[in-house]
Design a protein around this nucleic acid. Structure first.
Lengths: 198, 198
DNA sequence: CAGAAATTTTAATGGCGATTAAAATAATGC
DNA sequence: GCATTATTTTAATCGCCATTAAAATTTCTG
């Protein structure tokens, strides 16, 4: 199949570009990274990128879409597999950090949404909100089923997401540290939520 | 006193500039904000800023110094006033978020350290590390005195700092939300640390 | 291998933004 | 009020970077 072969080739290169871009954006910010930076990491010329994305704004947008998609995936798996709300929350943290620090990373931190053009910004914001609400629902479910102590789900959600989103700022690829994150973060971020035994 | 009057005038304007810059940087990133943006927020011309800072890099550097100073202040107050390690940790979170969402904000998120020139970068990194280590020491103290359950202090510190650092990404000045953050974050971020009663 | 399609490069263009020097305005001390 | 000093603006300069078109190269298809 010509299409399949071409698509894999094209899609693979495109993925490489998105990951290179994600890494640059995480390190130097949107405006701080030139297309040359992104291209250089792959041994390409800046102009070559235009074969894969319309322009720079589109590049961040795609990075953010990918980030949103991976986050959603983690959340869905957690909801599917987890029993109690607390378990779901813990699994979500685990799956999400696994993706972020694992071989599918780097994943772009969605921290420059204002740089997107209105249409894309709204799209990304909507996905982000949906993601946040979905996590809050896990929390609410946990409060309902008694596994999670009553709390302000909005604030708690913000805190957990913040801790996760900040990871790329201090994690720089060490696989030893990656294991540690996966081992520790789920506990750290959900232990405080557990309903007290007393 | 001519000096005092001059200094207050100068220092006040400089502070206004730093806060305007912090706000812009938090919203649009370092490279994403032009000096014109920063100046416009104060009804000034971009060139006027050069009377207060050597250049743009110096502007972020000063913003980061201010952020580091405010963080240190929160930490020190917490250590001074808190009894157990757990109490100190809770107080630190409280004081720090109070500063971030209170009238002394906005405080620059130190998320673009790579943009700094080597000298400033090392300085800021050093302060940041010190701050991190100081918080980890609070945790260690808590583990020692039995108020905090044994944990990976490095990872826990990263998680707590991340949750705090991320606040400016979703907090946009509402004083109602500010109160909520101050009320909830200390508990959310330290409840999980408490040593279990059993 | 030939020709077509896909991919990348070379070589412009254009604008934006940091920076600076000189000029203008405002504030202060006497 | 005058002279000095402090503050801000106006008007350049300069380099970087996104973007594009055309050319070159590589990859695929038969």
């Amino acid at each position: 199949m010509a299409q399949t072969a071409d698509e894999t080739r094209f899609a693979a290169q495109r993925d490489r570009i998105l990951k290179s871009a994600a890494r640059c954006f995480n390190e130097k910010g949107y405006s701080g990274t030139s297309l040359k930076d992104v291209a250089q990491l792959l041994g390409l010329t800046d102009a070559a990128l235009y074969y894969y994305v319309r322009n720079k704004e589109e590049l961040v947008y795609q990075c953010y879409l990918r980030a949103a998609e991976l986050g959603r995936e983690a959340l869905e798996r957690a909801v599917d597999e987890g029993g109690s709300g607390l378990e779901q929350a813990r699994l979500y943290v685990r799956y999400h950090v696994e993706i972020i620090v694992g071989p599918r990373g780097p994943v772009a931190i969605m921290s420059e949404i204002p740089s997107l053009k209105a249409e894309h910004r709204n799209d990304v914001l909507e996905r982000s909100r949906r993601h946040g609400r979905a996590f809050e629902q896990i929390l609410a479910r946990g409060i309902e089923d008694g596994s999670i102590a009553p709390c302000d789900v909005r604030m708690t959600g913000n805190a957990v997401m913040g801790a996760i989103n900040w990871i790329p700022k201090w994690f720089h690829g060490s696989s030893a540290v990656a294991s540690e994150i996966v081992a520790e973060f789920p506990g750290i971020l959900t232990r405080g939520l557990a309903a007290r035994a007393d």
